[in-house]
């Protein structure tokens, strides 16, 4: 557990008076594809963002690739982020640039001079080759010159995954990667993600809303309820009723507050 690439210990975080994360402890090992489940408003997204240092935490410890995120200097934080891929629900590609350029941006944090060394015009021969290879791995090498608006939602998410691959990360965080996709495209994206996790022995933490897909893909299921971990075990040991319980009763972090206010 201590040598896992991604470790969170007793993490607390708040927005003003709202106590969102109430002591989260989890770890994701190498070559492990864990699925994080939980109702809307249970604190999943805050946790995901905190793991990457996009959100500040109040208390607790997060260690990614051996770097402590809460106490990291700016340079250390950038180094930790460079080894951690992040896949978003809204893909977050730069709309004016080609798929190829978007993929090249994946190494922005790893090259001296940042953007100058990952513009298509100036990038090194090796990086350019690798960007094409990443696009090839997600099956879109023939779409390199297309802009995001010319691609379908599933294809855009695959370009975002190629950008993540370009980072050659050890950890991947996927925040509802298929929530804006139709079922077929969503399944393709999940298959791609888990294939990459197996091939590159990555640690993946992925939030999903589809319980069936979670049981099918996840090797491990983690359930969150009202800012706490309510369930954490191998997918095979989880009964459907346990999962359903995550979505009933007091699930949101803001409910208790409303109730005391009322």
């Amino acid at each position: 557990m201590t040598d896992a690439p991604l470790i969170a210990r007793d993490v607390h975080a708040s927005y003003g008076k709202l106590h969102v994360l109430r002591g989260i402890t989890l770890s994701v090992g190498s070559a492990e594809g864990a699925v994080l489940l939980g109702a809307n408003g249970c604190g999943k997204s805050t946790l995901m963002r905190a793991l990457n240092g996009l959100e500040r935490i109040e208390r607790g410890e997060i260690i990614a690739n051996g770097i402590s995120i809460p106490s990291a200097s700016r340079a250390q934080l950038r180094k930790a982020r460079a080894g951690m891929g992040y896949v978003f629900q809204q893909f977050n590609l730069v709309p004016q640039l080609t798929a190829y350029q978007n993929v090249l941006f994946g190494i922005m944090g790893q090259r001296p001079l940042g953007i100058l060394n990952c513009l298509n015009m100036f990038a090194s021969h090796e990086d350019r080759e690798r960007a094409l290879e990443c696009l090839h791995r997600v099956g879109l090498s023939d779409r390199a010159e297309h802009r995001p608006s010319e691609l379908s939602g599933g294809q855009q998410q695959r370009v975002a995954i190629a950008r993540m691959l370009m980072q050659s990360p050890r950890i991947v965080i996927a925040d509802e990667p298929i929530a804006s996709l139709d079922p077929k495209a969503g399944r393709e994206v999940l298959e791609l993600l888990w294939r990459i996790v197996d091939e590159d022995r990555l640690s993946l933490l992925c939030t999903l809303h589809q319980l069936d897909l979670a049981r099918e893909f996840g090797t491990r299921l983690i359930g969150m309820k009202a800012g706490r971990i309510a369930l954490d075990c191998p997918a095979a040991d989880v009964a459907r009723s346990d999962l359903d319980a995550l979505y009933h009763g007091q699930v949101r972090v803001d409910e208790t507050l409303e109730r005391t206010a009322a």
Binding site: N52, L54, L77, R78, K79, A80, R81, A82, G83, M84, G85, Y86, F88, N92, L93, V94, P95, F105, G106, I107, M108, G109, Q110, G114, I115, A160, R163, Q167
Partner: peptide, 10 residues
Amino acid sequence: PSQALTATGA
């Protein structure tokens, strides 16, 4: 998109 690039350590 800026958030995505920030998340790559840029």
